[in-house]
Design a protein around this nucleic acid. Structure first.
Lengths: 134, 134
DNA sequence: ATTTTAAATGCGACTGAGTTGCGTTTGTGA
DNA sequence: TCACAAACGCAACTCAGTCGCATTTAAAAT
């Protein structure tokens, strides 16, 4: 069943179905929180090649199958799903537990005093906390 | 408001006045934006030892002389001043041209409606635009 | 001014994240 | 089943950051 989802996802993006990619996809489909490289490596087993894994993470990201975020310590984490474009102002809620990113409407316009000479183009707000699932 | 010069800042924290520390302090006192390790290294010159520099950055951070932030690409940046109340009133301005990160005070508190079950802990705002230098 | 000493430095070695080039293997469509 | 681009595996590399240890130095005590 997950394999069906996986097949579709990969085929939609013109990505070949390799063992690693199916396994990698399973990681993301079966985990509700964002995964760091060590997390993924541990789930897939030691035999997985580092560069191949990174290349696939990049390919998945490129294909909007997963997205990458950096936590407060600057550690890269990967999670299923895509983050839509930061074109206009909007807010992201990042769960500190599962690192899931939720997009939400901003209730109030943010008013910031930027110093003279600074030109504001977009304002992005990141709310950190605990989501309803955790 | 009084401006504390380097000597006082270091002595207040029981830190010895070494050449590197004075120079490092100058970097932060004379720059209004956050600096990455390469930025600092370039300002101080090639002769500076890597581990000594990192140790001093850690010491300064410990002493609340500077604070560390990670930008959207997970790159560590250091800036003068201490971090305020867990980021609630903290905003970062990121210049789209020079990628420089400026720390600034928020004029208005952001008020976001998070869905039921979501618990907000910190709110961080990232403003993108063009800085006064660009 | 000299001695003392803990703190700071410089060096080398190390880990961990991430990238790149290249030769080999494999999935897929003809 | 064959051809070929795509994916893989490997080795080598860069860059960020850390640690242990021997040496130097700032600053307090003599």
């Amino acid at each position: 069943m997950e394999y069906v989802i996986g097949d579709d996802l990969l085929q939609q993006q013109g990505l070949k179905r390799t063992k690693l990619r199916m396994a990698l996809l399973d990681c993301f489909l079966n985990t509700k929180h964002a995964l760091s490289y060590p997390d993924i490596k541990q789930m897939l087993g030691e035999g997985v090649d580092r560069s191949t894994l990174y290349r696939n993470l990049a390919a998945f990201e490129e294909a909007d199958i997963i997205h990458r975020i950096y936590d407060q310590s600057g550690v890269a984490k990967y999670a299923f799903g895509k983050v839509h474009d930061h074109g206009r102002d909007h807010a992201h809620f990042v769960c500190e537990q599962c690192e899931t990113v939720y997009c939400m409407e901003k209730a109030t316009t943010v008013d910031i005093n930027v110093p003279k000479g600074f030109k504001t183009k977009t304002i992005q707000t990141i709310i950190r906390g605990i989501c309803s699932d955790c």
